[in-house]
Simulated assay, not measured.
Amino acid sequence: MTRYVLQRLFGMLTVMFTVVTIVFVIVRVAPGDPAAVMLGPDATPADIDVLRVRLGLDQSLPVQYLYFLAQLARGDLGHSIFLDMPVAAALLDRAEPTFFLTVFAILIASAIALPVGIMSAYKRGSFFDQSVTTLTMLAASIPSFWLGLILIQVFAVRFGWFPVAGYGGPDASFLTRMSHLVLPAVALGVVSSALITRFTRASMLDVLNDDYVRTARSKGMGEFRVIMKHAFKNALIPVLTVVGLTAALLVSGAVVTETVFSLPGVGNLVVSAVLRRDYPVIQGALLVIAAIYVLINFGIDLLYLMIDPRVRY
């Protein structure tokens, strides 16, 4: 088990080192002078030179790279040009909406996908199974922003059950802020449930006809216990993998949905940084999202040890 964990840690560190290097190279090889691009066409040569020195762009690339690594080792992601604040602080200020939106979306997706996928596999070839297959294909093809607009029109504008957009005022309570996340979470959760449903169904079909399932039934064990304890437990690793990947993708892919619902999350911050060409924010956001992605995958690898003892060997 120790070897397994060490291998995953080494893989995680390798991926992060690769991401850090790619982000460094992308910013440096972008057309034009990054300092001039950040400051805009009205900047004077003196202002550009000051920013170049501040960002270390006047040094050679190897020196810049070493400085960049040392900066990251201290937890310093840089300083935003337009926000005039550390990038880490800017990301932290925007983290709450994105975090809860991702959590709610993955809970909604799992609540829909797991029981539907299990039942679809159990009733393979039935009308229910065919309907689920059709609906998952439809859900997978629906853009989340379009579904979000429909939800706004129906449940926010027509019925007035939920806020149209935003995240509440500065003095808004926690429940008020969470109410602003219901519609975007449903939009993301419904679309994400399609992939999880298909993986759950496929994984369950692989194990339902195995010998240990037939043996459990022959011993007179209840059908629900057979499905959940023997079949689903052994089909859980592929399902857990796709759930984790979906959660990681939601963290990095909720940009459009946050924009549609005017949520002050990380996605909205990244869009604003791209429009303003605030490279330190873009660079810091890419690194943080990549780190979250890698950590989620590492957590999934550790959960494998709890689900399937064979992984330990």
Results as ranks from 00 to 15, higher is better:
4 Y>L: 01
12 M>V: 04
17 F>D: 03
20 V>W: 07
24 F>N: 05
27 V>D: 12
29 V>F: 11
37 V>I: 15
41 P>S: 12
41 P>T: 13
45 P>A: 02
45 P>S: 00
49 D>P: 02
52 R>Y: 00
57 L>F: 13
59 Q>L: 10
61 L>A: 13
62 P>M: 03
70 A>E: 15
74 R>E: 15
78 G>S: 12
83 L>G: 11
88 A>V: 09
92 L>F: 12
94 R>N: 15
98 T>P: 08
102 T>C: 13
103 V>D: 08
105 A>D: 14
106 I>T: 14
107 L>F: 14
107 L>C: 12
110 S>D: 05
110 S>C: 11
111 A>E: 12
115 P>F: 02
117 G>F: 07
121 A>M: 07
121 A>N: 11
124 R>G: 14
124 R>T: 08
125 G>Q: 05
139 A>L: 13
139 A>Y: 07
146 W>E: 09
153 Q>M: 15
154 V>D: 11
155 F>H: 10
158 R>N: 14
162 F>G: 02
162 F>V: 09
170 P>E: 11
172 A>C: 03
178 M>C: 08
183 L>Y: 01
185 A>S: 15
188 L>Y: 03
189 G>H: 02
191 V>H: 07
193 S>A: 11
195 L>C: 01
199 F>H: 11
204 M>A: 05
210 D>G: 12
215 T>A: 12
221 M>P: 05
225 R>I: 10
225 R>G: 15
234 N>W: 03
234 N>Q: 08
239 V>P: 04
251 V>S: 00
254 A>N: 08
254 A>K: 02
255 V>Y: 01
267 G>N: 07
269 L>W: 04
275 L>S: 14
279 Y>E: 02
286 L>S: 15
289 I>R: 02
290 A>E: 04
294 V>A: 15
295 L>T: 10
305 L>R: 01
307 I>K: 10
307 I>H: 13
309 P>V: 03
309 P>G: 03
